[in-house]
Amino acid sequence: MAFGVPGDLDRAFVAEKAGPGGASPFGLLSGALDDLVRFGCLPAERRPGAELLAWSAVHGLAMLVLEGPLHGLDREVRMMAGRGVVEMVVRGI
């Protein structure tokens, strides 16, 4: 998932960014990370700022593919890169 947040990080949680469940994409990511801590899947000491790391990695790849030098990659390579970035984020957090 890639997020577009105009302005600053405070706007990541505003009501107009919320989907049908009432949370913004950034809020969903933050909540999922909190749940991982609550269920013992993510050590609490690794939680602070984890959403910023995940967001940065996924958004970076998305921008490279959409508007940057990776724009011309074929679908299979883009999918492989996307899976790889998500896996890297999960393992790194």
Rank of each mutant, 00 (worst) to 15 (best):
L73G: 03
E87N: 04
P25M: 10
V14P: 10
L28Q: 12
V89H: 00
R47V: 06
A12P: 09
L53C: 05
A23V: 05
G4H: 09
V58L: 15
L64Y: 14
A54Y: 11
R78S: 07
L29Y: 07
F39I: 14
I93D: 00
M1C: 04
V37F: 11
P6N: 09
D35Q: 13
I93Y: 00
G21M: 10
L33P: 02
L61P: 03
G27K: 10
A18V: 01
V77H: 12
R75D: 12
V85C: 04
L64I: 02
R75W: 11
A32I: 02
A15C: 01
E87T: 06
P43C: 02
L66S: 15
R91F: 00
G92S: 01
V90W: 00
L53I: 07
G92Y: 01
V85D: 08
V86Q: 05
V65K: 13
S30G: 13
R78F: 03
A15V: 13
V65D: 14
A23C: 03
E87W: 00
R75E: 15
G27M: 09
G7V: 06
M80S: 04
V86W: 05
G49V: 03
A54R: 10
F3C: 05
A15P: 10
M1Q: 07
L64V: 01
L61N: 07
L33T: 08
R75V: 11
S56D: 14
H71C: 11
P6H: 07
M1H: 11
V85I: 15
